[in-house]
Design a protein around this nucleic acid. Sequence first.
DNA 1: TAATCAACTTGACACCGTGTCAATTGACAG
DNA 2: CTGTCAATTGACACGGTGTCAAGTTGATTA
Lengths: 210, 210
Amino acid sequence: MSSDSLPTPTRILQATLTLLEAPGAKLPTMSDIARASGVSRQAVYLHYPSRTDLLVAATRYQDTQNDVDAALAASRNARSGAERLDAFVTAWGNYIPKIYGVARAILAVTDTDPEAAAAWNTRMQDMREGCRAAIRALEDDGTLPPGTDPEQATDLLWTILSVRTWENLTQTCGWSQTCYLDTVRGLALAALAQDVGALTDVLACPDPPA
Amino acid sequence: MSSDSLPTPTRILQATLTLLEAPGAKLPTMSDIARASGVSRQAVYLHYPSRTDLLVAATRYQDTQNDVDAALAASRNARSGAERLDAFVTAWGNYIPKIYGVARAILAVTDTDPEAAAAWNTRMQDMREGCRAAIRALEDDGTLPPGTDPEQATDLLWTILSVRTWENLTQTCGWSQTCYLDTVRGLALAALAQDVGALTDVLACPDPPA
DNA sequence: TAATCAACTTGACACCGTGTCAATTGACAG
DNA sequence: CTGTCAATTGACACGGTGTCAAGTTGATTA
């Protein structure tokens, strides 16, 4: 087994991700994680001094595994601003499901642990850069609505693309991923690229509203 | 003091709301609440068997105090669908800041306590009815984008008007309430009432992006 | 005046999860 | 053989929730 030969910190991270990504799982305790890692509870603390540290390390590890930057960089090749926005929404929207488990765990402790909140914020700041770039491309095209402050447009796009929005539509409302993508893409184009028809035939997915 | 003459359960609820509504406050413990109520910790459990029960009771109490229904009912008088949507967004958007403290506390335990999640969901279901009605008005006007399923349009509006969205824009991004309102109104009109100019000059609030 | 009853208090305790500490084991390297 | 490092074991403190039993207080009723 390759997992036996991996260094302990990595084994712990992988076990953490496995627990976090299990659909509909309860938020794991340190004991759960230790057990799943095949390691004592104290060994976990030996490598990650607190639960928050571990969760943050888990996101970082996950990012290196998934190569976010590569996925998001694809949108840089788009010519028009609208195309770029489209590509960015698609790339990020498809990335969210991969990180949702970890995001959920971090967001859950965010209310009580300011350190976790800070870590998550800087994590999301990177994504915000992508929003910023997409908005700037629209700005160059002159397709932004008249009188729009690019900073606020970035905030809006960033909010539309937030994990919470994804969670609401797919988890609470039961939308499929493709339906989510179509809608959010249409919403972004309609609101920020003045694309009138962007939402035509979009809100019509054959989904059972769970 | 009028608060001395109030029945204990009510005093507890009021103290809870006061703690919850204090800006930037930590989530209060049962001891905090008892102390603020001028009552022993066990007296709290005497009336509310669990923290979740207390929080849920606090929202209900708050709703009766604020008379949500009256505020939201105003939107029923609008003639056109777009006007109705506008009025509803304004009414609900102005209600969110009042309930945010409690909402925050309930949402925080939602991840671990399914009972709290259920209570909050039914709480939000009422609001969803308002979304549904606004969408239906647009449907009657024929202003919904072609090929739109009203149920999904409702989901989308409901998500746009979610507490999380408000939280993201006003708390995290530092937007003013009026800026939030203008933007969300514009977003809803642009996306669901095909109002092309709804976002013109809207994303231009003189706010310091905190 | 005395008994009663409900609301409330006091203080203890169990349970769980986080985080800490100290003593111990086992393997590997010089 | 000895040191060192990683990991284990088992104990403990702390904070928060929730429970329990015994006592207090004050108003009502006999």
